[in-house]
Design a protein around this nucleic acid. Structure first.
Length: 235
DNA sequence: GACCAGGCACATC
DNA sequence: GATGTGCATGGT
């Protein structure tokens, strides 16, 4: 993973957070009106730009389908037509239906009932739903259910491996430990931190991995390899 | 026209 | 276990 002492890693992680916060300010994630909307957005944004997801969510709202009951009753074909702008619409329509099947089977279609269950059990359940992987499950836990879970995405891996804090070969399950074992276990901190990482990741110059505008560049030694180019597939 | 975006499941080796 | 591929629209 890395060779720094634990206390040093914690200080470095907080330093990075402070720099990002100073650069970008509070991100106030997740951009949604209800926990259910967060859950739907988490599925729709899989490998998709958020602006396209916004259009899809607006379509669902306009058709009064952004409630568990309405979406549960809607046909996959109807849903696919409305979420078309988010891409992978047939696939995502099926994934939404699978998630709603789970929500109704376990929680009577009421997301607030999920709050009664332990985080580890909820994560296990979410991962068992076809179409919900680690990042989507953790996004739901953190942003919809306010659990202190650190969300890792391709940006996190790219940026923190660049700065030598994780290994580029670390699995998804290894990376959150860097944060949860070295930072205070606070939902609000994890919420902002991940949102700030995404904000930075979007801005980094794709064609110039050593982007001099990156607010973290002074953390890097000259021996660090350049940020690897983004590759499809993630983990 | 090429590349990328707040992944995931499945097939193949 | 690791790697490759399909899923797909819309912005740059």
């Amino acid at each position: 993973m890395n060779i720094c002492k634990k206390s040093d890693i914690g200080k470095t992680l907080l330093d990075i957070y402070d720099r990002l916060y100073a650069e970008f300010g509070p991100r106030c994630w997740w951009p949604a009106e209800t926990p259910f909307e967060v859950m739907i957005g988490a599925i729709l944004t899989q490998n998709t730009a958020w602006r396209n997801v916004e259009t899809a969510i607006e379509n669902l709202k306009r058709n009064n389908l952004l409630s568990p009951e309405a979406l549960f009753k809607a046909s996959p074909g109807k849903i696919a037509g409305l979420i078309l702008p988010s891409g992978y619409y047939n696939l995502k329509a099926k994934r939404l239906k699978k998630f709603l099947d789970y929500l109704f089977e376990k929680y009577d279609g009421q997301p607030e009932k999920m709050l009664r269950k332990r985080t580890s059990k909820l994560r296990e359940e979410l991962l068992s739903v076809n179409g919900i992987g680690p990042e989507t499950a953790d996004s739901i836990l953190l942003y919809a259910l306010n659990r202190p879970v650190f969300v890792v995405d391709a940006y996190t891996k790219r940026i923190f491996s660049r700065h030598g804090l994780i290994d580029a070969n670390d699995s998804y399950e290894q990376i959150p430990a860097l944060f949860t074992e070295n930072l205070p276990k606070r939902t609000k901190l994890y919420n902002e931190y991940h949102a700030l990482i995404v904000c930075l990741g979007k801005l980094l110059c794709k064609k110039n991995p050593d982007c001099p505008h990156c607010p973290l560049m002074s953390l890097s030694s000259t021996t660090n390899p350049p940020i690897p180019p983004f590759t499809k597939g993630g983990f």
